[in-house]
Design a protein around this nucleic acid. Structure first.
Length: 874
RNA sequence: GGACGAUUAGCUCAGUUGGUUAGAGCGCUACAUUGACACUGUAGAGGUCAGAGGUUCGAAUCCUCUAUCGUCCACCA
């Protein structure tokens, strides 16, 4: 079993081998875990990456965090399931394939036709999907690959079609006219969040429809005015009050229009003329006003961005050409009053940058406000808002709760149809006036399926339950199989930019399908920026491929760099320096293990990791106390998602306490094998969720089982040194004094290496003399340099109060410090007592606070008495 | 325009309900070196916690304002 460890840890040599071992163990699948019958389930779904591109550092962070959670809960003995999958990313994928097609074959998707084009897409998918899965495995992800899903595979297609028809049946999905963001180039609607804005210089024209119309209006888009049905003014605007409610027949550039004057609070009196021409068919705001005032809707611009037939000479012109023609005509007729420059925000398509044409069209929608009887007559919006308000779903960090609620409260119906080829085709069939919705085409001739596909977030919104066998595992409001075992999931971990796009949809979808939340915690990580704080992007070329970093420093170092020094919700910079530091740490851990394993005989390897061995010296008591504290803290940190702090504490223990202190002590004191193995085992378990490979590699060199499924240590109620440190120092002082006075200390024993207490850390000195305390094993020493005594000290590694120097040089200093501390404490106590005597405070403050304050007072008093004792013994 | 964050050592960042002398990593300076580890060890320098007020016995931490940077949302016709 014993295997010599290499001098330095070599990640490349170990990682693939270990990953294979894990996969072969079958433990990624919770069904293979040996568990308590009543073990809790712990489920996370991996946010399915788009299959358009290989993974970036953001994905790496996701994998690092989720794998940490899963490994931690697996070690706790829970039924830990992490579900892998990929997202078909409808529009994005189609776009990428289209671009490649054009570049490689010079063809457009129309050249190929739908069928051939989709074949191209699927061929592309196969390649990218395997690249992505390879990357995820390289990150060490303990995903259950037997449950691998794809948002467009057969099971998910069934789920999507079921969902659609169920929603349709309950009237939650409807088809309607709406103003949509239309990209005339992509020939598709865009969701609001797919629209980007660009500042541009525009002209704003002020004019009257015709001579007889009393108001002037201002617009940057005169061509849409062919479809105006109203002019809106602010109800408080004194200039126009008298017109409100009146109707005018006007002839605008040859086009007869009925214009009603309406009042709307959204109109700003001091913008332009304070009168706004309302074009219901081509502006969201106008459409809303039209709805509120029951105004008709006139379509002016078609899907190609051209003027519809029926507008005389303008018909068939592009919007821009029509604008020019109209402005010219207004100018000729003397109706144009002003022409000014204006910078405004132009909506553009997030993919191609083409200007968005808002137009009305028939689309499919999910109603977020429709009351659903079986959900207690509440709408999806209401249910989703309640879930966050009641903290049934909690956001980490908390502030994102507000962002989620702000978004949900302003939520409009969700347009789910997209005019693209790749995706879930809408499961609706038409035959003349008849409409059918279902899982398959209806029987009979002549039914034609809707050509649109669904917004990609429709299928990813179902991800928590579509991956667990819904709808098959859900009948008559009862869950079975995986769905019963693993849903709701525990944590959804993703970037904060997905709150609106994805998280909100998942919550609504889950309520609709299952009447329950999809997850109880949402952990949001920040963006991973480059070392200069810039967003990584392909166009800037500052993106980092996680695989390159892994190649160079190993997966563990990469993961640790992503987890340490980062806090939820905050962006963080990623630099190689950081990874290098972590790589060094991992090597340190490796060497610590190497030292322990080579200095312990094999017969100690079986030492239990659960129960601390008997301590034999003060150093043992100290380190075991520290370990117990570490276990407790790490567990708490993990439970409260404070990974960075957990790692920092683990790091501090490993490097500053174990390596710097205890291992040095172990070189002098003997008989520490059991403790060393105990410490090592626990340390490896605690570190495992962060750095699974190196810990497993060390573990397998002296254990038969797999570390991944070891047992998470419980914090033993150990005597924690810190609480008693002052008493112990006292004991040592007394012991040394006694020993000195009784001449029991032999000052002459020469030791090769000893430990010297400087201020807080040890130093190995040669040819110095040590005086060993009879009681403690290490306690007191005198330090000589070139034959001259330079210091004498008593030392003790004691956590926060680490060292007390008592020699001739430092004794006085120490005494001064203690006296200062004493005064400080006395002051604190008097203030604390004052506070507690304040009747107002006691009566008003919550009991919890008062108790806490009392405890504080108590601890101050205890500390004070110890310090007084020490001072008096000096 | 609205909301949210950030501002702490030369750099990157921690700092959990306010509490003794504000921490880490990297970098820097000096020293050490065959004993687990140069992917090392020890010692050290380096901070008006953005600024100004306020609350408090006590503020990096709570409140107000200001400045700079960043993100998101809305969007002007």
């Amino acid at each position: 079993m014993k295997r010599e460890l290499d001098k330095a840890y070599n990640p490349g040599e170990n990682e693939d081998k270990i990953y294979k071992k894990w996969e072969e163990s079958g433990y990624f699948n919770p069904d293979n875990l040996v568990l308590d019958p009543d073990a809790k389930s712990y489920t996370i779904v991996l946010p399915p990456p788009n299959i358009t591109d290989k993974l970036h550092m953001g994905h790496a962070a996701t994998v690092a965090i989720e794998d940490l959670l899963i490994r931690y809960h697996r070690l706790l003995g829970e039924r830990a399931l992490w579900i892998p999958g990929t997202d078909h990313a409808a529009i994005a994928t189609q776009n990428v394939v289209e671009k490649r097609l054009l570049k490689e074959k010079g063809k457009t998707r129309q050249d190929l036709g739908k069928e051939k084009f989709l074949e191209e897409v699927w061929a592309f998918l196969k390649i990218t999907q395997s690249t992505i899965l390879h990357q995820v495995k390289k990150m060490g992800a303990s995903l259950d690959w037997s449950r691998l899903s794809f948002t467009l595979d057969d099971e998910r297609q069934l789920a999507v079609r079921t969902m659609f028809s169920e929603m349709y049946k309950e009237g939650v999905i409807y088809r309607g006219d709406r103003i949509v963001n239309w990209c005339p180039r992509c020939h598709s609607t865009l969701a609001d969040d797919e629209v980007e804005y660009k500042e541009q210089l525009a002209k704003i024209y002020t004019f009257k429809y015709d001579k007889n119309f009393p108001l002037s209006i201002s617009t940057t888009r005169p061509e849409t005015k062919l479809g105006d049905t109203a002019v809106a003014v602010n109800p408080k605007d004194e200039r126009y009050k008298k017109y409100i409610g009146q109707e005018f027949k006007v002839v605008f550039c040859g086009q007869a229009l009925n214009i009603k004057i309406i009042a709307d609070r959204n109109v700003e009196s001091d913008f332009g003329t304070g009168a706004l021409g309302v074009t219901p068919a081509h502006s969201m705001v106008d459409w809303q006003m039209a709805q509120a005032n029951n105004l008709p809707l006139i379509k002016v611009i078609n899907e190609e961005g051209q003027i519809h037939p029926g507008f005389g000479k303008f018909s068939g012109l592009s919007a821009l050409a029509a604008r020019e023609a109209i402005v010219n005509e207004l100018r000729e007729r003397g109706l144009l009053e002003k022409e000014e420059d204006l910078t405004n925000n132009l909506s553009i398509c997030y993919r191609c940058g083409t200007a968005i044409e808002p137009l009305s069209s028939k689309q499919w929608f999910i109603s977020v406000d429709k009351k659903i009887e079986r959900l207690g007559n509440k709408s999806l919006k209401e249910k989703s808002i309640e879930a966050a308000q009641s903290e049934e779903i909690k956001f980490i960090p908390e502030r994102f709760n507000k962002r989620y609620l702000d978004w949900m409260n302003n939520l409009h119906d969700w347009c789910i149809s997209r005019q693209i080829w790749f995706g879930h085709q809408i499961p609706v069939w038409y035959k003349g006036e008849d409409i059918y919705t279902g899982l398959e085409a209806p029987s009979g001739e002549g039914w034609i399926q809707d050509q649109d596909t669904l917004d990609t977030w429709f299928s990813s919104g179902m991800w928590t339950f579509s991956t667990l066998g819904w709808p098959t595992n859900y009948n008559d409001a009862k869950k079975s199989g995986d769905l019963a075992k693993f849903h709701p999931t525990q944590v959804l971990e993703t970037g904060y930019e997905l709150i609106t796009l994805w998280i909100s949809r998942m919550i609504m979808m889950s309520f609709f399908a299952l009447d329950e939340i999809p997850f109880s915690k949402v952990y949001l990580h920040g963006m991973i920026l480059d070392k200069d704080g810039k967003k990584m992007s392909k166009s800037k070329g500052n993106g980092i491929d996680p695989l390159d970093i892994i190649e160079k420093y190993g997966t563990d170092a990469t993961r640790l760099a992503l987890l340490m020094g980062t806090t939820p919700g905050n962006d963080s910079r990623f630099s190689e320096d950081k990874v290098e530091a972590k790589r060094n740490f991992i090597n340190k851990l490796w060497n610590i293990s190497r030292f322990i394993l080579t200095s312990c005989d094999e017969k100690f390897y079986a030492a239990a990791s659960e129960k601390a061995p008997q301590e034999k010296s003060i150093a043992d008591t100290w380190i075991l106390g520290e370990m117990s504290k570490l276990i407790k803290n790490t567990t708490e940190r993990f439970n409260s998602f404070e990974f960075s702090l957990a790692a920092e504490e683990l790091n501090d223990f490993t490097w500053n306490k174990l390596a710097d202190w205890y291992l040095e002590i172990a070189k002098v004191e003997k008989d520490k094998e059991e403790i060393l193995i105990y410490l090592l085992k626990n340390l490896l378990i605690l570190w495992h969720p962060f750095i699974p490979f190196v810990t497993e590699a060390i573990w397998e060199s002296f254990n038969d089982n797999v570390l991944m499924v070891a047992k998470w240590p419980g914090a033993e109620e150990k005597e924690v040194f810190l609480n008693n440190d002052i008493n112990l120092i006292q004991d040592i002082i007394v012991a040394i004094r006694n020993a000195r006075s009784e001449n029991k200390i032999e000052p002459s024993k020469k030791i090769d290496a000893i430990i010297y207490a400087g201020k807080s850390t040890p130093l190995i000195l040669r040819q110095a003399e040590i005086i060993k305390s009879l009681k403690t094993g290490i306690a007191s020493l005198e330090v000589y340099e070139k034959g001259e005594k330079i210091d004498s000290a008593i030392m003790l590694p004691l956590g926060e109060i680490e060292i007390y120097l008592l020699g001739a040089i430092d004794g006085e200093k120490e005494k001064t410090r203690l006296i200062k501390e004493k005064a400080n404490l006395e002051k604190l106590i008097s203030l604390q007592a004052q506070k507690l005597n304040n009747a107002d405070f006691v009566s008003r403050a919550p009991e919890k606070i008062v108790t806490a304050e009392k405890e504080k007072l108590n601890s101050y008093e205890q500390e004070l008495s110890k310090i007084v004792n020490i001072i008096s013994s000096l």
